[in-house]
Design a protein around this nucleic acid. Structure first.
Length: 800
RNA sequence: GCGGGCGUGGCGGAAUGGCAGACGCGCCGGUCUUAGGAGCCGGUGUCUUCGACGUAAGGGUUCAAGUCCCUUCGCCCGCACCA
């Protein structure tokens, strides 16, 4: 019989579907395992070969856990709101709902063709009103707790999309989605106070098992720093507050820089004598994105505010005030005290504008460059701080500032609040009513979901408002509080909203009374293993942790953290080693791979391609190796004879069971497959295989190649379905051979190889090594100074 | 500029501080064949052999370094000049 993968794969996929083989059961007495992969955005391009890398890896984990007796939840769904769909809808005059439906249908059939063991009965879709009802519900809870608020603020405005972007969505100074220019604009926006959770988000990283680089990246993003706020008085009598992490260097502050957007500039417009210049600079800065401001970092620009000055509170010296775009209004207080002696940017600025540079920490050469690496230095030119080490000076100056009432210690975070509004159609409507009398009033929960109304056009309004703003009938409503005339909010939520809690919905996806039942959440949470891309580390992953923590605080979810473990996969690149993209023409279509080689080969190759955590280039040639492997498994299975594991294969099987099991848990599927290949090579060399051997081999291979193994299981006549069996056990004692080859080294150079009993004593091993001709030759005439024996590895004779 | 990674055969990659190159691709040779771009068997880091040299380059720690430390170079990812 031939290995007809097309027939076999269809057959088993249908059987699994019919039987609901991979449905998680609601039997809360069983041990559970919740494996999660990031649900995809169903784009018009269809599935990318990168998607199955993550899905297959955790599919393997899920299948192994089922073998081990766990009640496994491995769900899938669709993160379907978003701009590409909306843009496609605008361009082609098709309703985004239709576009979404079509894209999902395609994605789903592609995923199904890979034989992934998702529980499709729990499929969720963020654009389904039954789903976003609860997204809106969570927003209302945030609003009621004061964590959602509206703020007139400087926002990133995309000229292309005509909409506001979260800072996090601006990539390289252009819109992440359309690539359009991003400028600053003032707009009243719904915001979420993620900053309120900054400390918790930081602290609780210590309680979760995330790979280290994810933790590091989140910590740096949250960016906690300790320092002080210092209030400088000015010649105008106003106070200018700065935040600094180096209050110890206050005596070295020779000027001040405020961001071009700083409000005090308007207040001083009458006294600033060069206001024309200031206004011009301000306008230029507004046109620049934060990224551009950083790009021109080397060439510092700025304008001195003539006619005003600040006063350094420690020595009463008047110091000039500048505006410069290297100071951002969004961090700290939007104003800094410049210490050119000990800060590189300030030093460059001071050099350019001919400002005084004072050394306040000994040790560097401030004529040549700023002395920044001075944490262990001693203070100079600093009055009462002179002679103190930097750390002590920090404490003393902070005490001084606090006593005098001109400053105090301050913890600062880089993390900023989340801009939670989009002037777009294809998103969850924000369930808020604007009442001229009562202000912003939340919709009553019984009114949810507030569904998206039908519109003619999805184009944002000319002024940048949402397409919903043109629907007078929909907008006009009554105030839930006073009953008077009021208007609906026309902005929608960002795409991140629906993905911030989807893993909760999987626990109980059809519940109409709650986002999920208490029992289901108690049982399934936390997610045991969550895998996703590094690109979501600071956006989605942080947002969803924030929402989860909030829901925990209001008693909706039972755990403070959503995910117990987080890993991250590397990207799959094109054959040319570049990122796959339409324009480069290096995109590989997974459908073709499945067609030409089968899903099992595809899965195997996705896992064998390289180190899971690193990027790996696709290579169509290499797929053949995985196909050959399965062909050989098929051929060997046809030769199967009765009997258990033959003695000469006993240790090989025990070792392979151990290795494959451990490697799956370590996310090292590539070496697990290599171990199975090695075992197959050994079996093939013996020209035969027994039923007992094949049973274990098929079980170990099943998570990787589920279709062919089920088929062979049935062909050989093993009882039941393969997926109902249990994971084989290994005996540690049988993983060890009775004899082992060790090397004999002289001064670290290999001189001989010795076959020795595995438990040979150190003395015997050394004696045996020394009796070897080559070893004896190498040590001849020398004095042996040291002898090292590493069990099962080597003997090293150190001779001089 | 800041933060996080990564540099190993022709290629993808293996390697608890302990024989560098497992496994696979490709390539070379053989076999079978009317044929081979199928299958099977053997070989395959570099150098001229005994042997020596080899994990981006240089230095260090160690009996022993791809692995740990320092310096340099190159590449990738993220970014908000974060005061």
């Amino acid at each position: 019989m031939k290995y007809d993968y097309k027939k076999i794969e269809k057959k088993w996929q249908d059987i699994w579907d019919e039987k609901g083989t991979f449905h998680a059961v609601n039997d809360y007495s069983k041990p559970k395992y919740y494996a999660l992969v990031e649900f995809p955005y169903p784009s018009g391009q269809g599935l990318h070969v990168g998607h199955p890398r993550s899905y297959t890896a955790l599919d393997i984990v899920a299948r192994k856990k089922r073998f081990e007796g766990y009640n496994v939840l491995y769900p899938m769904g669709w993160d379907a709101f978003g701009l590409p769909t909306e843009n496609f809808a605008i361009k082609n005059h098709i309703h985004p709902e239709i576009v979404t439906k079509n894209n999902i249908a395609r994605f789903k059939s592609q995923l199904k063709s890979l034989g992934l063991s998702f529980d499709w009965s729990r499929e969720v879709n963020t654009t389904d009103p039954g789903y976003y009802k609860w997204t809106q519900w969570i927003f209302l809870q945030l609003f009621k707790k004061g964590l959602a608020y509206k703020k007139e603020m400087n926002v990133n405005w995309c000229n292309g999309c005509k909409c506001v972007l979260a800072n996090e969505e601006v990539v390289n100074g252009v819109c992440e989605r359309c690539g359009g220019e991003v400028v600053h604009k003032t707009k009243s926006q719904w915001m979420l106070k993620i900053t309120e959770y900054a400390q918790k988000l930081l602290d609780d990283l210590d309680t979760v098992d995330y790979i280290e680089r994810v933790k590091t990246q989140q910590r740096n993003w949250i960016g906690r720093s300790t320092g002080a706020e210092v209030r400088f008085s000015t010649t105008q009598g106003d106070t200018l507050t700065v935040y600094t992490t180096r209050p110890d260097t206050l005596f070295g502050a020779t000027y001040m820089v405020i961001s071009p957007e700083h409000k005090i500039i308007d207040k001083w417009s009458d006294v600033i004598t060069n206001m024309d210049e200031v206004v011009a600079y301000r306008e230029a800065a507004a046109r620049k994105s934060d990224f551009e401001r950083t790009e021109v970092a080397k060439d510092k620009t700025g304008v001195r505010l003539d006619g005003v000055a600040a006063i350094n509170p420690v020595n009463d010296r008047e110091i000039p005030i500048f505006i410069s775009d290297y100071v951002l209004v969004s961090y700290g207080t939007g104003a800094i005290m410049a210490v050119p002696g000990h800060d590189t940017r300030d030093w460059e600025f001071a050099k350019k504008f001919g400002l005084p540079i004072i050394e306040v920490v000994k040790g560097g050469d401030i004529e040549k460059e700023a002395f920044t690496d001075c944490a262990t230095g001693i203070m100079v030119n600093s009055g009462f701080l002179d002679g103190l080490p930097v750390e002590e000076a920090k404490v003393k100056i902070t005490e001084f500032l606090t006593e005098k009432g001109i400053g105090e210690p301050k913890v600062n975070f880089k993390l900023r609040d989340w801009v939670f509004a989009r002037q777009r159609y294809w998103g969850e409507p924000i369930p808020i009513v604007h009442c001229p009398v009562c202000g912003y009033v939340p919709l009553d929960e019984s009114q949810l979901p507030l569904t998206l109304p039908e519109v003619e056009s999805y184009e944002p309004a000319e002024n940048g408002d949402s397409p919903l703003s043109t629907l007078t009938e929909w907008i006009e409503t009554t105030c839930p509080k006073c009953g008077g005339k009021a208007q609906r909010e026309t902005d929608t939520m960002p795409q991140w909203a629906g993905s911030s809690w989807y893993f909760l919905r999987y626990c109980d996806p059809h519940n109409d009374d709650a986002l999920a039942s208490k029992e289901a959440l108690e049982y399934w949470l936390p997610v045991d293993w969550y895998n996703g891309g590094m690109e979501h580390t600071t956006l989605h992953l942080l947002y969803s942790r924030f929402w989860h923590k909030f829901l925990y605080d209001i008693g909706v979810v039972p755990t403070p953290e959503p995910y117990a473990k987080r890993t991250s996969h590397g990207m799959i690149l094109g054959e040319d080693g570049q990122k796959m993209s339409k324009s480069r023409g290096n995109v590989v279509n997974p459908d073709e791979v499945v067609r030409d080689y089968g899903a099992d080969t595809m899965r195997l190759y996705e896992m064998f391609i390289g180190d899971f955590e690193k990027a790996a280039p696709w290579n169509t040639n290499s797929i053949k190796g995985c196909k050959r492997f399965l062909d050989r498994v098929w051929n060997l299975a046809e030769k199967v004879t009765d009997g258990g594991i033959r003695p000469q294969f006993e240790s090989a099987f025990h070792k392979t069971i151990k290795k494959v099991g451990e490697d799956i848990e370590r996310l090292k599927q590539n070496t697990a497959i290599a171990a199975l290949m090695t075992l197959l090579n050994e079996l093939e060399a013996s020209k035969s295989v027994t039923k007992g051997e094949m049973k274990i081999f098929l079980t170990l291979l099943n998570p990787f190649a589920p279709h062919i193994t089920e088929e062979l299981w049935e062909n050989i006549g093993f009882e039941g379905m393969l997926n109902e069996t249990t994971w084989p056990k290994y005996d540690e004692a049988k993983c060890v051979d009775s004899t082992v080859e060790i090397v004999a080294q002289v001064n670290g150079k290999v001189k001989a190889k010795l076959n020795v009993p595995v438990d040979i004593s150190q003395d015997d091993a050394i004696a045996l090594a020394l009796s070897d001709e080559k070893v004896a030759q190498a040590v001849e005439g020398k004095t042996i100074v040291k002898q090292i024996y590493i069990k099962g590895r080597l003997v090293n004779i150190v001779a001089k």
